[in-house]
Design a protein around this nucleic acid. Structure first.
Lengths: 256, 256
DNA sequence: ATTAGTCGGTTCATTATTTGAACCATTGGT
DNA sequence: ACCAATGGTTCAAATAATGAACCGACTAAT
């Protein structure tokens, strides 16, 4: 492992739970010698990637990231980042993958990727508005939204898009509890007939859900093998995208 | 110079004008050997700090910055970053420094730092609203705001806070041209009597002014020496803060 | 008051990594 | 067909990274 890699690895130990790390801790965490870590932190500090909080105390992430993040966003707009994750999820599952963004109280499916693997596939309209109670994406968001928001949604009228749409608030509450337990939401024909979909929430920097990533397959194709694949891949993609967007799953989010 | 420093230096060559850099270019820019640069970019890429756009093509900034920027913001809120810059500016000039944020059409002075060096000093109210045409901060913002915004402000009634407030639109337009030329705005007793202030605009990631950083001194103390010091320090602080906040001065902004 | 165990930071001989000139294989322009 | 770029690779020589031991300062417990 090269020196640069080792130095950059140090940055990965910072987290919201541990924004300040001392020299000895860092040496322990990285498994490297204290002197080595000290020199590396010195170089990282000189470049602004890390800074020391007081006089000779702990280290924390430095001031360069705002600028670099802005440059990155300029070079690769979020749309492209989302698109790349969707493409990968789509390749892994061979089914339609889509991303939806919570805009106010509406969940809008903004981006999608189709798999060329099957002749039949679930298709999406552009900027389709998804119901919060009738889609897996909606349930994924609701399960991690603020209690106030979820209550408001469940107390409002719950239209049935299909004859399978769950419209009973209590039944929905039970479903949300299950989503919270598994970290992934599932909906069978609740929005479109013959569509079986799974979704994972995407979180912002405050740990609030900002949208969801989902995989939608024809009901007929959803056997147990595919279901396992989809669930695993969707949850991973969700965590990955959350991370890429600079967000953080809340502490209550289950680890896969 | 350590290897880590050299590798991190590579990241500084990316800019909005040059978001994609090839191996040879990078070697030229850094003055290092191509093989060295190649290995470093490889390590940076493995860590996600850089990525390759196509198959074996140019490099661009990687996906890690969103996350790191979010962590940094969590550890050090913007308020603290602004505060640190103000404190430094205040120390350098021995006068009151303040930062104001453009909120809609209102410019609000959100943070300030006082120098203990003099018995008399300019004091600020909390969340004081600054006029766009009567303060140096306002002029700094106006000079770099969109033409539509500036026109709308100049066509609206221009109240005079003091007898020195400039209220003639043409005279103001001339002043704005001067600000655009120098990159720094100046106002003498236009908002409060006996206050002589200088301000530099702060830009967001789109190159739009989001606020200003300013130094305000009693008129009596503003001799030529102090004026030079203040102008230099304010402009530097402005550029520095813009950079720290992930913003970019527009191409039209003069280099000091 | 003494001790023992931290901490951040430093030293320097040993070691392993980095370095760079020369070298491919491709590509695009003339 | 050629030339001059490009991205990428090789390997002996040069250099920088490493880590055990050490320092002084501090804290908590004895």
């Amino acid at each position: 492992m090269g020196t640069v890699t080792k130095a950059l690895q140090l940055l990965t130990f910072f987290s919201r739970a541990q924004p300040l790390i001392g020299l000895s801790d860092m040496a322990r965490l990285s498994g490297m010698n204290k002197a080595t870590v000290h020199r590396m932190l010195g170089e990282l500090q000189a470049a602004g990637f890390v800074e020391q909080v007081g006089a000779g105390r702990h280290y924390r992430l430095g001031p360069v990231y705002m600028r670099l993040a802005a440059l990155r966003e300029h070079a690769v707009p979020l749309r492209d980042v989302v698109g790349a994750v969707l493409q990968k999820l789509c390749d892994e599952t061979q089914e339609t993958a889509h991303f939806s963004l919570l805009q106010g109280t509406q969940l809008v499916a903004t981006t999608h990727a189709y798999s060329p693997h099957h002749g039949t596939r679930v298709t999406m309209e552009d900027a389709q508005i998804l119901t919060l109670h009738g889609t897996s994406s909606g349930l994924a968001v609701l399960a991690y939204a603020s209690p106030d928001f979820a209550r408001a949604v469940l107390e409002a009228p719950l239209p049935a898009r299909t004859k399978h749409t769950i419209t009973d608030p209590d039944e929905l509450r039970a479903k949300l509890a299950q989503v919270q337990k598994n970290g992934i939401a599932e909906s069978i024909s609740g929005f479109e007939e013959d569509v079986h979909s799974h979704a994972a929430p995407i979180f912002d920097a405050q740990g609030q859900p900002l949208g969801a990533i989902a995989v939608a397959a024809p009901v007929a194709r959803m056997d147990d093998t595919l279901r396992q694949t989809v669930r695993r891949a969707t949850q991973q993609a969700g965590l990955h995208l959350t991370r890429l967007l600079g967000g953080f799953p809340p502490d209550t989010y289950p680890t896969p």
